[in-house]
């Protein structure tokens, strides 16, 4: 079942007196439960594409439909609601809130959904269980390693059980062992919860886990291939 559909999409940014075209006439379709990577060098348009899928930005031309909603036609409020309910974000630098504990960082995503305290507690504990951090619920981000911090960020993205998780270079700040651990965790969640994962990356470690690799260069999709690596077959 198609969850993301992009048709003839172009994105232009004003630069000085002219314009810079970040994405050129992109067509793309991503089905529910895919584990897909947007791959390409810096400036290829990965993050711009991720922005539009995440309803953080809108296309200049063409359409981007995410979970049956045309991103261009959404108001700020509707965009926020889409992100709040259906989308999870994982950033390169974790971006945990330093004054809150691990538990509270994960819980925050649910506070915006007005979930009851009991349901919230269960969801947070489940999410921390998925990433193996139930013993760190009272720790502050400063007390965590990079790998642990990124696992908290995954738990925060996953706690509301979103349909899509968007991850921008999630392993860029991690060593090899932690990267693999993180990717295995995401792969497991992709399998168990049927969550669609979309990565923007040029990290070789990530590519080994991808089931589908969409290569971008100069704002165009230059390749779209299914992957059959050992890692991607694990789950």
């Amino acid at each position: 079942m198609e969850i993301i559909r992009i048709e003839g999409m172009t994105k232009r940014f004003p630069v000085g007196n002219g314009e810079f075209t970040a994405l050129k006439n992109v067509d793309l379709s991503i089905a529910e439960g895919e584990f897909v990577g947007l791959v390409g060098p810096s400036g290829s348009g990965k993050t711009t594409l991720l922005n539009i899928i995440g309803s953080l930005d809108t296309p200049s031309d063409g359409t981007a439909t995410v979970i049956n909603q045309d991103v261009s036609s959404l108001s700020h409020k509707q965009s926020a609601l889409l992100r709040n309910i259906h989308l999870g974000f994982i950033f390169q630098t974790y971006n945990l809130l330093p004054v809150y504990t691990v538990y509270e960082n994960v819980e925050f995503a649910l506070l915006l959904q007005n979930m009851s305290a009991t349901a919230r507690k269960k969801a947070v504990m489940d999410a921390l269980d998925w990433v193996g951090l139930t013993d760190k619920i009272k720790s502050k981000p400063a007390m965590l390693s990079g790998g642990e911090s990124q696992r908290v960020a995954i738990a925060r993205a996953m706690v509301k059980k979103p349909k899509i998780v968007l991850a921008d270079e999630p392993t860029a700040n991690l060593d090899s062992e932690n990267s693999h651990h993180i990717l295995q965790t995401m792969l497991k969640l992709n399998k168990e919860l049927k969550t669609t994962f979309v990565f923007a990356t040029h990290d070789e470690k990530v590519m080994k886990y991808l089931r589908r690799k969409i290569s971008l260069a100069d704002g165009k999709v230059i390749a779209d291939e299914l992957m059959q690596t050992e890692k991607s077959k694990q789950y």
């Binding site: 995440g54 992100r83 809130l97 925050f108 915006l112």
Partner: peptide, 14 residues
Amino acid sequence: YTEYGIRLALGEEK
């Protein structure tokens, strides 16, 4: 700044 950014990304309205 980061906190507000995260909150916006998580779907909190401005």
